[in-house]
Design a protein around this nucleic acid. Structure first.
Lengths: 242, 242
DNA sequence: AGTTATTGTACCAATTTGATACAATGATAG
DNA sequence: CTATCATTGTATCAAATTGGTACAATAACT
């Protein structure tokens, strides 16, 4: 499905989708001590957007979100959490839609289903950066990681959706112990602390952080990690859930 | 709109509604030291349900929830909070729907829009029990308060929706200081404590609770409340938001 | 062997929380 | 009019948690 004629057919003869409802995913990864978010750029436009999609008629909401994210990251069974529904009546914009489709060489008829009103269910996804292989969809020519302080202006209300996701993540971080989803199997205490500091946006005192994490009883100490640096080698830890 | 013919017309010629999306409200009040939830009972059936409704095409989500609740309680500008979207593909049941409509003397055609798949956005509402005047909708013959330990089996997944609402409320109670919405303008510290204990489902130590609440700096002490009981009279407090 | 930077942990002060105690106070009973 | 009673507002102290500093251990480099 790369030729425009195929695309056009695809978008006009969509399989049966749940009307009015879409999903947008705030997909976070952690790399080089930086929190990153996955964004699409639509072909031949300057529109950036969160990865998203629609729900098949015979598909549970959560399954739809998993499917959408698998298509963008290659990963299955992603940690994700619903955080808010965005449902203002004028959150979307017909002109933007038309330009995006035009960028793919598709002319949108006035009765195209995409021009109807949609609400969007926001999910945030926490994934292991090193395992994901981002790939764009049919309408976009890039799907890439962006540092949180370098997020461009996104289409519609996607900046607001992102903001709300981060706010929710911050609130849930201690409560649900979800940070580990952003790290590989094994990690050092320093990496874990950097992750927490990045999400919370504040410095933490090292010794207290270590005490707190070890006190939770959810970390298994694996072995020493010889870094090659001129200092004591840190332990590697593993998350033991439950 | 009380005659069946009118009703039938109403349900078959609905104004333009957002397809696939409904709203269900977990409406809580506090009375006689008991937390209570508002439930409907459909006419001539044994089906109980959370108050709910649909979204008009030109209506924001939040406004729709406010409208639905105003219709059931007579109150405007209710404190409410979105807490989850329930979107399993088989969360609703055609047979149940038909029975409910049949209870109102309406025969549902197979293509009735109500028989399509719907997702439901859950809102919880906290209201001043003494100010609400519950009133049933066209399909139900009662709209009443139920003690939390006397909730009947509800239709579809409404018991699950209720459970999730209460779980969310418990988590948010301290964080967002929302409990005050369940009390009248003025209240005693004892009433406030009873409310907290009921929501959290656990006893709290009186002196510590008082210290904590006063320490928040959001309570204004109004005057003594002479109760007529053989003891020291408590102060009345008022919530000062922000 | 000495230097260096970072790690794991110990330690103490400050703060918060849990639990008990007690004086103050409206009403009632004698 | 005084004694009694139940509940309120507040004080107090111990226990637990958190914030901040210190220090020995150690892997690699000089």
């Amino acid at each position: 499905m790369t030729k425009n004629t195929d695309l056009k057919e695809y978008w006009e003869s969509k399989p049966r989708l749940l009307p009015s409802v879409s999903i947008d995913c705030v997909t976070l990864g952690f790399h080089n001590n930086q929190l990153k978010v996955l964004l699409l750029k639509y072909k031949n436009t300057n529109y950036y957007a969160l990865p998203g999609g629609f729900i098949n008629m015979d598909e549970d909401l959560e399954d739809a979100a998993q499917r959408i994210l698998e298509e963008r990251t290659g990963l299955r069974n992603i940690y994700l959490e619903q955080f808010h529904v965005f449902g203002n009546k004028s959150r979307r914009n017909d002109e933007t839609h038309k330009q995006i489709m035009a960028g793919c060489g598709i002319e949108m008829k006035p009765n195209n289903f995409l021009l109807n009103r949609f609400i969007s269910i926001g999910y945030y996804a926490l994934i292991d950066f090193s395992k994901a292989t981002p790939s764009p969809d049919e309408l976009s020519d890039s799907c890439e990681w962006y540092d949180l302080d370098k997020i461009p202006t996104l289409m519609f209300d996607h900046n607001e959706i992102f903001r709300k996701a981060l706010e929710t993540l911050r609130m849930m971080l201690d409560d649900k112990l979800i940070g580990f989803n952003l790290l590989p199997e094994t990690f050092t205490m320093n990496e874990l602390q950097n992750l927490y500091e990045t999400i919370l946006g504040e410095k933490l005192v090292r010794s207290n952080f270590q005490r707190k994490m070890l006190g939770l009883g959810i970390l298994e100490r694996i072995e020493k990690k010889m870094t090659g640096a001129a200092n004591k080698a840190p332990y590697l830890y593993k998350f033991i859930g439950g």
